[in-house]
C-alpha cells in the first residue's frame, strides 16, 4: 500500500485485499452497539455533577451523535471507490479530498476508541506496534487500531503542513 498527497487530495494506492477490507470496515467499526464500554467512551461524562450530566445528555449528546454520524457518512461515501472487483484493487486509488480530512480523523478516532473499548486493550498492548502474526479476532482488532492510527498520523502530517 502506498499513501501520498496529490494536490488537494490524499491518495491511497497499491491496496491488497486485506488492507482494502480493513478500510471498508472503518464505518462499521465505529458502531458501539452491544458494547456499553464503547458507548461510554464515545459519549463520556462531562462532569462529576449529576445536573450537568443530565443537561448534557439532553442537549449536547444529540449534537455529538449528529457530528459523529456526519463524519462517518463522509468516510462511507469516499470508500465507495473501493467497491468492485477484488482483482482490480491493485489498480484502484482511493482519493480522499483534503476537505474531508477532519471527517476521516474523527471517524478513524471513533473506530479506534470503539475497538479498543470492545477488546479492553491494555496500555502495553496498545504500545506494542510490532505484534504479529494475527492469530485471533483480538489480534486483528489491535492491528486495526494501529493501522487506523497510522492513517491518522499521515492525515495529521499532511494537514498541519
Amino acid at each position: 500500500m502506498e499513501i501520498c498527497r496529490q494536490d488537494d487530495a490524499l491518495q491511497i494506492s497499491d491496496l491488497d485485499p486485506f488492507l482494502a477490507e480493513l478500510l471498508r470496515q472503518i464505518p462499521e467499526s465505529t458502531n458501539p452497539e452491544g458494547a456499553p464500554a464503547a458507548e461510554a467512551r464515545l459519549f463520556s461524562r462531562p462532569s462529576a455533577e449529576k445536573k450537568i450530566c443530565a443537561e448534557w445528555k439532553s442537549y449536547v449528546e444529540p449534537e455529538l451523535r449528529r457530528l459523529f454520524r456526519s463524519a462517518t457518512e463522509t468516510v462511507t461515501d469516499d470508500l465507495t471507490q473501493l467497491n468492485g472487483n477484488e482483482k482490480s484493487l491493485s489498480n484502484c486509488i482511493l482519493h480522499i479530498p483534503i476537505t474531508h480530512a477532519d471527517a476521516w480523523l474523527n471517524t478513524l478516532n471513533q473506530a479506534r476508541l470503539v475497538i479498543a473499548a470492545k477488546y479492553k486493550f491494555s496500555d502495553e498492548e496498545l504500545n506494542d506496534h510490532d505484534r504479529s502474526p494475527i492469530g485471533s479476532r483480538r489480534d486483528l482488532g489491535l492491528f486495526q487500531v494501529n493501522f487506523y492510527g497510522f492513517l491518522q498520523e499521515f492525515i495529521l502530517r499532511e494537514i498541519s503542513g
Partner: peptide, 10 residues
C-alpha cells in the same frame, strides 16, 4: 468531546 477527548468540567 467532539474531538473525542476525555474532558471534564470541574
Amino acid at each position: 468531546h467532539g474531538y473525542l477527548l476525555l474532558a471534564t468540567l470541574e
